[in-house]
């Protein structure tokens, strides 16, 4: 009796979720898969085939964009790591007491703003009639207005900026939990800064599962951000 009651309540609790996952996650993906194998022969007849996939691989525009997105994603994730690591290191290992908390919080606050607002801020700075352009002109470095938006560098700036949080926060938490003795031992055994970084800190701080999490978050975000930046 008891077990049948608990079985019933489990089903009641889980039904909305199961409906969600079947109807709004699995079904749409299956439909996407099905449509990808359909070929329109004429306005009212549809045949099965792999023509869409052939198009994708033969039309260089498609797979080039695809490869470009992947490369961009990897590159910006790497760049974000390079930029975020020293900050995370400073916050986690060097800063003490109050300044640690303040630095960490200061790193988080910009990301409480919406992504759209943040990216728009960069547009104000980088656009042809924007601040950077007019500053460069005032300094006499350029003659006319410079357009700094709508190019690869702008996309990378936007991606790195928006991805910084997802890199910095996991890095700070793992580096913070790192055993001080490990680093000391590295130096005691005669390792230089480079060796200690390579042999101890990187395997611990960068390859920890938590950071892989940050990594994949970065990659996921960057796929979506590129849409935002290339307005």
């Amino acid at each position: 009796m008891r077990s049948s009651v608990s079985r019933l309540s489990l089903w009641l609790l889980l039904t909305p979720f199961l409906l969600w996952i079947v109807l709004l996650v699995i079904l749409p993906h299956l439909q996407m898969l099905r449509v990808s194998f359909q070929v329109r022969e004429s306005w009212d007849s549809i045949a099965w085939g792999i023509e869409q996939y052939q198009n994708f691989f033969t039309e260089s525009y498609y797979w080039r964009t695809f490869v470009r997105t992947g490369v961009m994603s990897l590159f910006t994730t790497f760049l974000t790591l390079i930029i975020a690591f020293p900050i995370a290191w400073y916050i986690a290992r060097l800063a003490r007491g109050c300044s640690k908390g303040i630095l960490f919080l200061a790193c988080l606050i910009p990301f409480w703003a919406s992504e759209l607002v943040r990216t728009y801020g960069w547009m104000i700075l980088l656009r042809e009639s924007g601040l950077f352009s007019s500053w460069l002109k005032a300094l006499g470095w350029v003659d006319g207005p410079v357009e700094m938006l709508h190019n690869d560098v702008a996309v990378i700036i936007g991606l790195v900026y928006n991805g910084l949080l997802f890199m910095a926060v996991p890095l700070v938490t793992t580096l913070d939990g790192m055993d001080e003795n490990l680093v000391e031992a590295g130096y005691d055994l005669g390792g230089g800064h480079g060796t200690v970084l390579r042999e101890i800190v990187v395997p611990w701080g960068v390859l920890m599962p938590c950071c892989l999490n940050g990594y994949s978050f970065g990659a996921r975000k960057s796929c979506t951000c590129s849409c935002c930046c290339r307005w």
Binding site: I87, A106, P110, V117, G121, W122, I124
Partner: peptide, 20 residues
């Protein structure tokens, strides 16, 4: 060196929002 770097990155973090 670390302080300069930190200041620089924090400025970059806040510039777009402050400007907006």
């Amino acid at each position: 060196l670390p302080r300069t770097y930190l200041t620089l990155v924090y400025i970059l973090l806040y510039v777009p929002i402050v400007v907006l």
